[in-house]
Simulated assay, not measured.
Amino acid sequence: MNGPLEFEAIGTRWWIRAEGLTERIEADIRRRIDEFDSVWSRFRSDSTVARWAAEPAPRNGAERTLVLPAEAAPLGRLYRELHELSGGSVTPFIGESLVRLGYDAAYSLTPHGPAVPAPVWGRDARWEDQTVSARGPVLLDIGAAGKGLLVDLVCGVLEDSGVSDYLVDAGGDLRHSGAMAERIGLESPFDSSRAIGVVAVQQQALAASGTARRAWGRGLHHVLDGLTGEPVRRVVASWVLAPEAIQADGLATALFFVPGQELAARYGVEWLTVHSDGHAEGSEYFLEGLF
């Protein structure tokens, strides 16, 4: 194949540059993405999580369980850590709140009712290894870290095919492997046509989270606080550099609720947060690249 691979999938634009990319590898990548989407997408009525959420709750109040693929185990562990670090604000059980505010399967962007807190982890629902359990209908939403996980899985397809020099970018969440670093622009959360800085990425993953890309109505966007179901207001954008995209993606979301110094001390990552008043905080690696 000549040139990078570009396509739309899971509601975002993918851009993959890889040495040795073939049509067979491209087919394997597309197949892996579709497999992931068929399990995790809450925008598909036929997905595993959507069908489970639509099942009626047992009349006797018994728990319902959902057994997920192997990739669910590291995703669930990360969610559990971030849930605890954020005091419950980061949660995979936030799907119903997003639907109520209009970020639903039809992308209606029209609120259907007031925001509601997410089901309480450990009381109403829980996630252990590959199994999610709940006493009532629960709509999973893995938007906080799921795209990062899928980027890692696509990189795994490349590596299993003998490709070691690549850049996989899924709508700004990316992972790099190779001898030459990539300089990546940091999009302004206040003007998407401008960058507020650049960062060099080499043998790492970079993830961004922001309130501007998926925003609608008056003050509505997709980054919700699980404790209230309401959109966050204090932070407007965040970035994290980490060894893997799942970690970078999850921690970028956590920065809306947890001080960056705390996440850096625990995970050893580089980070940047932009607040609604325009000021930025971050590790020196990011700050020295700001314009």
Rank of each mutant, 00 (worst) to 15 (best):
A62L: 11
P114A: 13
L21Y: 03
G76Q: 10
A200D: 15
R213P: 00
R175G: 00
D46C: 02
T22P: 00
N2M: 07
I246P: 00
G278S: 11
T110M: 13
A134F: 03
L139H: 04
H221I: 09
S108L: 11
V154I: 12
G250N: 12
G95P: 01
I25N: 02
R31Q: 13
E182P: 00
A9N: 01
G61R: 15
T131D: 10
E182S: 08
R32N: 00
H275K: 14
D34K: 07
T228C: 02
R44W: 05
E244F: 10
S192E: 11
R32S: 01
G148N: 04
A70D: 13
A9M: 03
H275T: 11
L149V: 06
L82K: 12
R234Y: 00
V168C: 08
L101H: 04
R59E: 15
R100Y: 04
V236N: 03
N2W: 03
I33Y: 00
G3T: 00
I94S: 05
Q202T: 05
V232Y: 05
V39N: 07
G282V: 09
G143R: 05
G11A: 02
W121N: 13
P119V: 11
W216Y: 10
H279N: 11
D225T: 10
L78Y: 05
W271K: 15
L98N: 04
P4Q: 14
P259L: 14
L153M: 15
E23G: 12
H112D: 06
V132I: 14
G278E: 08
S238V: 08
E26I: 13
V154T: 07
A280P: 04
V232R: 15
R126K: 11
A212F: 12
H275S: 12
I184P: 02
E23Q: 14
R175V: 07
S86N: 04
Y166V: 07
A264T: 13
H83M: 10
V240N: 06
I196F: 03
F93G: 05
A125F: 02
S97Q: 06
G178E: 10
A181C: 01
E71H: 15
A179M: 08
V240L: 09
G88C: 03
N60P: 00
V99H: 10
A265W: 08
A265F: 05
W15A: 14
T65L: 14
D28T: 05
R183C: 02
V223Y: 02
I25E: 02
V154W: 04
A248S: 09
A205N: 09
A212E: 09
T48E: 15
E81T: 11
G3D: 01
G178P: 07
R30I: 00
Q204F: 05
V201P: 02
S177E: 03
E6F: 02
S86I: 07
A9V: 01
L5D: 01
S86K: 08
I29M: 09
T273Y: 05
G162A: 12
T131Y: 02
S133G: 04
D46S: 12
P137E: 12
G87F: 09
L287K: 13
V90Y: 07
Q203R: 15
W239P: 12
F7S: 07
L158S: 07
S283L: 09
A212Y: 15
L82Q: 06
P69M: 08
W271E: 14
V199Q: 11
H275L: 13
Q261P: 00
F291S: 15
R13N: 06
A179R: 15
L68V: 08
